[in-house]
Simulated scan of single mutants.
Amino acid sequence: MEYLADPANADSEFHGVMEKAWAEQKSETDHSLTAVQGLAEIWNKVEERKPQIRSSFSLLKYAAAIVVIISAALGWYTFKNAQQPIPIDVAFLSKTTQKGEKVKLILPDSSVVYLGTGSKLTWPSHFAKGKLRSIRLEGEAFFEVKHDTKSPFIVHSGQMQTRVLGTSFNIYAYPKDGTFSVAVRTGKVGVSENRDGKLKHLSLLTPGMKLLYHLKAHDYTVSNERITEVNAWIKNSFAFKDIALPNIFKSLERYYNVHFELKTNKLNQCRFNATFTNKSISDVMEEIRVMSGKKIKYKIDTANKTITVWGEGCQ
């Protein structure tokens, strides 16, 4: 021990390491692979520096030094490993809206999401820099994504995957409707199909472009849309372009929190182009009646929030 305590007698390289490691040594010995590898390195250094001839007394002192160095080295590696950050599982948050409800959310990266009625959004409690910013959507939402070229923003919605770096766009993805859509307001958006674990690129969209993806047929179409209509629903404006009446009713059900009862299949063939802005549900129904040439009839049960619809059809 005196040999080690005297820097003049001890190897200067080992003395500094040993002194620090000995002070920080823990009572338990570390037998991990890292510690064993570190010990092997020390032994190699010892073998390289060991003189060819030693007196018995010198060898005893050197052996004592080796014992302490080994113990100190194991303690040092234990201390070093204790300083490594412990992986923390990322928590996931979610928000579900009810019929007639829509909310504004701020994600951990400061991106803004307007979540539509009857929708669910799931996202991690934080995004790691340089990693994918992945979230999941069921329903409708308009995104204003913060630009980050090193961390692509990905929205998973059923079999459809939307990837951006920083832009604003709308996703409509209600599973029961059978058709999903992605419409771009600003920037560029890449849309892919994730089918049976295989990712297939479908299209790159720019402002004013809209992709319709058909769930059963697994095909899609791309069309143009007015930029002002991409997120019109946020301001209570709904635009329908050549949409079948049953599908219009599905959207109205969600946003007005009502239930439609169709008394005849003749109405399934009715298709309309219409825009409703800040209209009450009674005003909307009256406009639909007029557009049908007054062939569609309806009755609103306010107490039960039910609208019964019948008529001769639209042919």
Rank of each mutant, 00 (worst) to 15 (best):
T162D: 08
V189H: 00
L137C: 04
V309W: 00
K102M: 09
A128G: 07
P85S: 00
S203L: 01
E28M: 13
T167G: 03
L267D: 02
W310K: 15
P246E: 01
I53Y: 15
T122C: 03
V90M: 09
D30Q: 04
T306Y: 06
E13W: 07
K102T: 06
E28C: 06
N44T: 15
S119K: 04
N304K: 09
G118D: 15
K263Q: 15
K295W: 00
F57L: 13
L4D: 04
S27M: 13
Y62S: 10
V67Y: 02
A303N: 10
I307P: 03
G116L: 10
Q98K: 14
V290N: 00
L267N: 02
A21D: 03
A5D: 07
H259N: 00
T162I: 11
L115H: 05
H126E: 09
L105C: 03
K45P: 10
E2Y: 11
K150H: 15
A64L: 09
W233P: 10
S282F: 00
S12F: 11
T34S: 11
V284N: 06
N257E: 02
H126A: 14
G139L: 07
V112F: 01
A183Q: 08
V145P: 10
I66S: 12
S94H: 15
V191E: 06
V90E: 10
V67L: 13
K263A: 10
G293A: 07
N273Y: 15
S12W: 14
S292K: 03
A141D: 01
N170D: 13
E2M: 00
G116Q: 08
C314W: 13
H218I: 01
K216M: 07
K146D: 08
E287G: 07
L115Y: 05
G178R: 09
Q25C: 06
T122H: 12
E28Y: 12
K45H: 14
A244L: 09
N81F: 01
Y62E: 11
A35C: 03
T206F: 12
L39W: 10
A23E: 06
S292A: 01
W43R: 10
V145H: 04
G75P: 00
K20W: 02
Q315V: 12
E140Q: 10
K263W: 00
V222I: 03
N194Q: 06
H126Q: 14
G197K: 00
K198M: 12
A35Q: 05
N224L: 12
E261Y: 13
S181T: 09
F127G: 06
D219R: 02
K150I: 07
W310C: 06
S119V: 03
D301R: 11
R185F: 05
N194I: 12
Y255P: 06
L59G: 03
S110R: 15
E47S: 07
A173V: 01
